[in-house]
C-alpha cells in the first residue's frame, strides 16, 4: 500500500470518518476547512497518529502548515521524513 492510500485509511480509521473510503478522498483534497473538513481538534489526533503509524514527528508549526495542506503534501512530508 502506498503512503497516500495508507494515510487515507489512517484518517478514516483514527478520525472516525465513517462514511468515507480511501477511494472517496482525492489526493489534492484539503485536510482542513473545505475538502475533508477537519478542524483543530482533528489536528491534535492527526499529529499523534502520524507518529504512531509512520514514525514521523511533526514538531515545527511552519513545517506543519505546509504538510497539512492536502493528502498529497502530507504524504510527501511523511515519505521525506521517514525515508
Amino acid at each position: 500500500m502506498d503512503t497516500k492510500t495508507k494515510l487515507k485509511q489512517v484518517l478514516i480509521d483514527e478520525l472516525n470518518l465513517e462514511d468515507l473510503t480511501p477511494a472517496d478522498i482525492k489526493d489534492d483534497d484539503q485536510l482542513f476547512g473545505e475538502g475533508l473538513g477537519l478542524d483543530s481538534l482533528d489536528a491534535v489526533e492527526l499529529v499523534v497518529q502520524i507518529q504512531k503509524h509512520f514514525g514521523v514527528e511533526i514538531k515545527d508549526m511552519e513545517e506543519g502548515r505546509e504538510a497539512f495542506a492536502s493528502i498529497a503534501t502530507l504524504a510527501a512530508y511523511i515519505e521525506e521524513k521517514s525515508g
Partner: peptide, 15 residues
C-alpha cells in the same frame, strides 16, 4: 490564534 490553534506545538509539548 496560530496555525490550527497551536495544536502542533501543544502535542509536541506533551510528547
Amino acid at each position: 490564534g496560530g496555525f490550527l490553534g497551536g495544536a502542533v506545538e501543544m502535542v509536541d509539548v506533551l510528547k
